[in-house]
């Protein structure tokens, strides 16, 4: 193990993966610092899950260099596995066991696990600790998945679409959990196709589409860089709605004021949201 404290938690260069004729990952570079929360954002089939599975060591790659916590995941040792926590997209847990039995049992796999009761509390399952897993709701099972992902006290947590199928309230609760883990210093990589989730959680995010990263940066910076154009909307006297995209909305509004001589009917000036930026970047603009 040749780990440096200041090295990147995840360092990926030129990653490629083909499935037959389909290129799932087409030259991805990623650098995730220690303690960072990084979001991999993109539509379904963009190559997010494949990328994460390669980082977990559960899928081979065709080309590229990958270093996760200083090691190549393709030859991950037991010691390495004990430092990486994984929450898959589709999980299942032993239905006949209780939450507490399962979390306690998984704790035994690790050299220095967290306290099982504390972890059960962290994911908000105290009230269900004695329940069989088959009796849990979808959201509760997902929280158990996270509990099993963090029970070993990982330095890096890989979450693949952690909140798919959650209702809004459950999603908010889940965000709090991720924030709490990030606060403790865990490096977190999460994939999601929910933009608001990436914006709420990630220090930095990369937008992936068709196996490539098309944009990367802090959420606010992305919005600024790709979304400077504002949209000015108003209503003509004959009732027809009009809109104009412009880099200088103030000038447009001033011109309108002169034309209408005062109040402009139906005036609205808007900046693109991160969602607009995202849809434009992933070529889904027409979907709106």
């Amino acid at each position: 193990m040749t780990a440096h404290a200041n090295e990147l938690a995840v360092d990926v260069r030129g990653l490629r993966k083909q499935y037959g004729d389909v290129t799932a990952v087409d030259g991805i570079d990623l650098g995730i610092g220690r303690g960072e929360v990084f979001g991999l954002l993109g539509p379904n089939g963009a190559g997010k899950s494949t990328t994460v599975e390669i980082l977990q060591g559960h899928r081979g790659r065709d080309a590229g260099e990958v270093s996760v916590l200083g090691a190549d995941p393709a030859n991950g040792t037991r010691a390495w596995r004990s430092r990486v926590g994984i929450v898959w997209q589709d999980e299942s847990a032993p239905a006949e066991l209780t939450v507490r039995e399962t979390v306690r049992h998984f704790a035994r796999y690790y050299p220095r696990p967290r306290d099982p009761e504390e972890v059960i509390g962290l994911v908000g399952l105290e009230g269900k600790a004695g329940s069989r897993i088959k009796a849990l709701s979808g959201g509760q099972r997902r929280r158990l998945d996270v509990a099993l992902g963090v029970i070993g006290g990982p330095e890096l947590l890989l979450l693949d679409e952690p909140t798919t199928g959650f209702d809004p309230a459950a999603r908010r609760q889940f965000w709090e959990l991720i924030r709490a883990l990030a606060e403790e210093g865990t490096t977190i990589l999460l994939t999601t196709h929910y933009l608001e989730e990436a914006e709420a959680l990630a220090d930095r995010l990369a937008v992936v589409t068709a196996g490539r990263i098309v944009a990367e940066g802090r959420p606010a910076a992305l919005r600024e860089r790709y979304g400077t154009e504002a949209t000015v909307e108003w209503t003509e006297p004959d009732g027809a709605p009009r809109s104009e995209r412009t880099d200088t909305p103030t000038r447009t509004v001033a011109a309108l004021m002169r034309r209408f001589d005062g109040e402009i009917p139906g005036l609205r000036v808007s900046r693109p949201t991160l969602e607009d930026v995202y849809l434009r970047l992933t070529g889904q603009e027409d979907a709106r």
Binding site: Q56, H58, R78, A79, R81, S82, V84, I86, W88, D90, E91, S92, A93, P94, F106, Y109, Y110, P111, L148, G152
Partner: peptide, 13 residues
């Protein structure tokens, strides 16, 4: 049901 895959992701020998 991916129980094995999950185990493989832990340091369980």
């Amino acid at each position: 049901e991916k129980v094995l895959r999950r185990l493989r992701g832990t340091p369980m020998p």
